[in-house]
Design a protein around this nucleic acid. Structure first.
Lengths: 168, 168
DNA sequence: CAATTGATTCAGTACGTACTGAATATTCAA
DNA sequence: TTGAATATTCAGTACGTACTGAATCAATTG
């Protein structure tokens, strides 16, 4: 096996680990890494071979990645089978991931905490007063996360870099 | 069951969901929510009852939370059993979580990507050149995340708020 | 020191998610 | 329209993580 292949294997392996810790499943992240690292679009068969996974798994992982908006299906002239490619710009990629995580994690949590807060407002005991304050703080934190998301969404990459440099 | 209890249940339920999506396991996050919302420290038995989980599970969840540095064990004068409490300041809490996630996710990924990059430097083909560029971009993104962590670490809460307001 | 209370450990198990591969559907060329 | 190539679906299963509860360990008290 050549070194290029080894490097690719190492990349998909680790990007898979990283993905798993980020709520994207391991295989999905590996498929993404593969497409991301490859200049030309890949077909299902190539992905199967590279990652040693089943046809069904490739199909489902690609569908899920397309749902996330990270991968797109494309036709290649003269080819019968479908090819797949991914967003190649890392910042764009990061924004899509952030958006999805906001939708799945931040938004429902904000709703739930607001709901709890409303419930606590109908009670008047010393312990509920304390809890209310704590939950309010928690909500504020999550809302800050939400605002941070909106901030990132509007920024371009050089701007983020510049901002960070100011603080280091 | 009183409304206060219902509110607490709702809180632990949802904070548990949120935690699960953040790589903290559900029960751990629920235990944390309970301690966070309670003014007085709680003992293992109280946690068992509130969350309807086994003694062993409480013990393991608390240990893990203590490993993360979010929960501390404390003695109460005249009491034989141990009591547990958690960091009550949300910003402090957030910093601890961020630190842990950086250690578990960002740092290993940076190492892996650097490693891959070194491997790719020993090859000289058109496809490896493309891959090299992509991996370098990915690494830069993750390193930006790392820098963001260091930025947050140094800031206090009011400062973060102020910064965000500037951008909205 | 025994007895009692409480904490910890861990083998066994439950449970949920991810994966396979065969059956089915779809597309396209002849 | 048929057959070949490709894609999708999904029932069954593998696999890993989380949980239980009994056994064990530790601490405290009389």
């Amino acid at each position: 096996m050549d070194t290029y292949q080894q490097a690719k294997d190492k990349l998909t392996l680790h990007w898979g680990e990283m993905g798993a810790k980020w709520g994207i499943n391991r295989t999905m992240a590996q498929v993404h890494a593969l497409l991301f690292a490859s200049e030309k679009p890949l077909c299902a068969e190539e992905i199967m071979d590279e990652l040693q996974i089943s046809r069904g798994n490739v199909s489902m992982s690609l569908r899920e990645l397309m749902n996330w908006g990270i991968v797109t299906k494309m036709h290649i002239k003269g080819e019968r089978k479908e090819f797949y490619t991914t967003e190649k710009d890392v910042w764009q990629f990061f924004k899509i991931i952030s958006q999805e995580r906001k939708k799945r994690e931040i938004d429902p949590t904000i709703n739930a905490l607001r709901d709890v807060l409303r419930d606590l407002d109908t009670i008047d005991t010393p312990e509920s007063a304390y809890t209310r304050r704590q939950v309010a703080d928690l909500l504020e934190l999550v809302e800050t996360g939400d605002k941070l998301y909106h901030m990132i969404e509007k920024m371009d990459y050089p701007r983020v870099m510049k901002l960070i440099k100011q603080f280091l």
